[in-house]
Design a protein around this nucleic acid. Structure first.
Length: 152
DNA sequence: GCCAACGTTGGC
DNA sequence: GCCAACGTTGGC
């Protein structure tokens, strides 16, 4: 199967694309996903899939660059750690509700593509980012990806 | 900081 | 299984 495309939201105050870059080839576990739809998309991700990194809850919400999947879905150990802010009392070692994938930095776009621009492009009007604004992990079609990289 | 959208929880 | 109450996300 050919590589797929996804969009991952992150708040730059918490973890920005520069933070991802600083992690280098080891990448970073994409933690804190506590939404079933988002989790299910993470479980579909394959090695080498491209992820678009999106900065949300900031001055200019925008797609700011690209990463890739370097480890497919595995149990989210943060859900089992009472000291973690992502602790989930309803998860246990043999019944963990949540998953993580590891993401590594690929490229920071020279020009971010703001949500305000995306909203004006007809070919991007069906993006989950636009239609389901609160979803933090979502699929991007190959066609949408091709359009997006012309805007960067 | 406001508020719309919407996912989750829990009583019944 | 319905639905009200509540909490969170995230654009503006």
């Amino acid at each position: 199967m050919t590589s797929q495309y996804w969009l991952l939201k992150t708040e730059p105050n918490e973890f920005s694309i520069d933070d991802l870059k600083a992690k280098g080839s080891n990448g970073e576990p994409w933690d804190g996903i506590r939404n079933y739809q988002a989790r299910n998309f993470m479980r579909e991700m394959a090695m080498g899939d491209t992820v678009l990194i999106y900065h949300s809850a900031c001055a200019v919400p925008a797609i700011v660059g690209e990463g890739k999947i370097i480890k497919t879905a595995y149990d989210d150990h943060f859900a089992l750690d009472p000291k973690s802010k992502y602790f989930d009392e309803k998860s246990s070692a043999d019944k963990n509700r949540w998953s993580l994938v590891d993401v590594a930095f690929v490229e920071k776009w020279q020009k971010p593509v703001p949500l305000s621009t995306i909203k004006t492009v007809k070919a991007l009007s069906e993006m989950k980012l636009v239609k389901q604004s609160r979803l933090s992990v979502s699929p991007v079609t190959a066609d949408e990806y091709e359009v997006l990289i012309t805007l960067k």
